[in-house]
Computed example of a mutant assay.
Amino acid sequence: MDFTLTELERDLLDLGRTYAEREIAPIAAQAWHEERCPTDVLRGLGELGLLGLLVPEKWGGIDASTVGYVALLEALAAVDPSVAAAWQAHSTIGTMPLLLFGSDDQRERWLRPLAEGRQLAAFGLTEPSAGSDVRSLRTKATRAAGGWVLNGQKAFISNAGTDMSFGVTVLARLADGGFGSFIVERGATGYTEGPKLRGIGWHGLDTRDLFFDDVFVPDDQVVGEPGKGLGQFLSALEVGRISVAALALGTAQGALNLALEYAGQREQFGAKLSSFQAIQFKLADMATQIEAARWLTYYAASLRDAGKPFKKEAAMAKLQASRVATAVTSEAVQIFGGTGYMLESPVARFYCDAKVLEIGEGTNEIQHLVIARELGCA
């Protein structure tokens, strides 16, 4: 297991961490309370070259390792999980299908501006009646002269409705029962975006429903071979699970950082909270849980970098790290006491942001199934 970052990746991590502390941290709470996606800081990340971390230089990216990507994602999430969530959705399920399965013309036309940070990527999978049960998708693609016609609705789609968004890559059912991936640009006739949805957390992430009413998609906007779209998405999703694990690590670490700071300042009964054994034990357990999940996550990332199977390890990392995030943020609120329960408290934001990590990119129940099957269970 080699988790060592290259010199370039260390520089990128320092660059991203400095930018997060200088530019993202001051506006994170306000954007969260305003329920606004701060695309100005995402553009700033793009200007630094950090929106194409997993994309080869040939297509405008940096071609960092998965381990390097995870390290930067964790650092961003420790400052603002919402911005980090937008960044990871763009970098994985939004961008990977185009990188892995798109034609060179598609990569030049759509992948390059995404990798160079000029636009934001989104992928449309989930529907009102289908999430983990992908084969129940109802959005349909019907063959037409020179292309396809899409009809249906997608739900909870991130990054599709910002002023940076290029549109969305959509997974739709074909007449023969297979699935295809289709690029739908903003402004296409019949394509509309619902209002920004309001979740418990990730208030700074733009998430909304998308509607397709006889949307025509030319043949040159089909990603890969029609009928193989589901396999394409599942391939990208495995990287997404590592990303969610890294998001969870950063969210948990951000909450721990706040708890440590608060415990070192808050006085009760004439002493700092950090001097009480009960608080010390909580903090020790939180740090230990994060570190254990971190090793599992970086291990999954290193397997991908080595070209080895990582499906099981990615699912394990996502499962464990998301559990740790919900547990650690809950304990952080407990350390803050009544102050932590108030939405104005910085730790409350991390607490609210943590829960979705057990749901997104495949629920934890699905991760159990993936792991069990990889273990050989029938």
Rank of each mutant, 00 (worst) to 15 (best):
G177P: 09
K272I: 11
M1R: 13
V244P: 05
E7F: 03
V217Q: 07
I290Y: 13
A77M: 00
L237T: 07
G224E: 12
L8M: 14
A20L: 00
G270W: 04
G178V: 08
Q280D: 12
S65H: 13
T162M: 09
E185K: 05
E74T: 03
W110I: 07
L42I: 09
F123G: 14
L210N: 06
S275F: 14
A300Y: 04
N151F: 02
L303R: 10
K272P: 08
F182K: 07
E47M: 12
K311H: 04
W148Y: 09
G307Q: 00
G167Q: 02
T363R: 03
A255I: 00
A145W: 01
A20F: 06
L5C: 02
A28Y: 04
K311Y: 08
S235W: 13
E261G: 15
D213K: 11
T329F: 00
D104H: 14
T4E: 12
L98F: 07
G229K: 13
T363Y: 07
E225M: 12
G180W: 08
G152S: 09
K312N: 08
A75C: 12
L120N: 01
Q334I: 01
G117C: 06
G61R: 10
F233T: 06
Q277F: 14
K318R: 08
A317M: 12
D14A: 15
A121Y: 04
D11W: 13
K355W: 04
G94L: 11
R22W: 04
E23H: 09
L234A: 05
F123M: 08
Q221I: 00
T66Y: 09
L303C: 04
F123S: 11
L100Q: 15
A354Y: 09
Y19G: 08
I183C: 14
E57S: 15
S275R: 07
L230N: 12
V217Y: 14
S91T: 09
G199P: 02
L319N: 08
R373Q: 06
A115E: 05
S132R: 12
V239A: 14
F336D: 06
G49W: 05
L303V: 02
G46E: 01
Y299I: 00
A315K: 13
R266M: 10
G102L: 14
D14R: 15
G46P: 05
L99I: 10
S136W: 00
Y19K: 13
F233W: 13
W202V: 03
Y341L: 13
G146L: 11
D305M: 06
D219P: 10
E34W: 01
F269R: 08
R186E: 00
G180C: 04
L258V: 05
A287P: 00
E34N: 15
W202S: 01
S330Q: 15
M1I: 05
I279H: 09
G16P: 05
A172K: 02
N364M: 11
